[in-house]
């Protein structure tokens, strides 16, 4: 009887600790902060910081009203697998939607349609955006630290010169994953 009560109490405690899944604002403050991977809010932070830096660069401002931008190679050199468009879209979508750049797309369907359209032509890119995502891990006792390094370069096509470069490091430290900031 005593054992049954103990088991029931333990079960109640365990069940009571569970948190049912709920929807959260992707831009909110109650997101999971992981030590071992790049979180969605890390992409947002890095993307918005780099976007702000790029649009204030002299080369970008000299390029006229809406230069043609092409996305080059973005390498993921971290230990976790993710699509680099998680970062890129944070930069390109505000620029495209505000009419600040014309983004060159290499979609095969669009290319095939263009090939069948007489007189259609593709503009030459003014800039190519390329980059790399790296990671660095350190540990002291039970405290783990992960740094994710986002590096982007804007290359001017006509000169092949890097006209803007930015590095944003997101560092997280702790003993376990947590929620929010």
């Amino acid at each position: 009887m005593k054992n049954t009560f103990t088991a029931l109490a333990l079960a109640a405690i365990l069940v009571g600790c569970d948190t049912p899944a709920t929807y959260k604002d992707a831009d909110g403050r109650q997101l999971v902060v992981s030590l071992d991977k790049v979180d969605i809010q890390d992409f947002a932070t890095a993307g918005s910081t780099m976007l702000q830096s790029m649009v204030t660069s002299p080369a970008f401002n000299r390029a006229g009203a809406n230069p043609v931008l092409q996305v080059g190679q973005i390498t993921n050199d971290t230990g976790t697998n993710f699509d680099t468009s998680m970062l890129l879209v944070k930069i390109t979508s505000p620029l495209v939607n505000a009419g600040r750049v014309r983004l060159l797309e290499s979609d095969p369907v669009a290319t095939a349609a263009r090939n069948n359209t007489p007189g259609a032509s593709v503009p030459v890119a003014d800039f190519v955006l390329k980059g790399k995502i790296l990671e660095d891990r350190a540990k002291s006792g039970s405290t783990k630290q992960s740094s994710f390094v986002f590096q982007l370069t804007l290359v001017e096509v006509k000169t092949s010169l890097a006209v803007w470069q930015q590095e944003k490091i997101v560092t997280k430290q702790g003993t376990m994953n947590s929620i929010g900031f």
Partner: peptide, 23 residues
Amino acid sequence: QGNWMTTPLEPGALTTITAVALK
């Protein structure tokens, strides 16, 4: 720009937040 950007500030430290409009 909805996402929160985190800046740790030491006592007495100063930081500059730059916001650039696209439109």
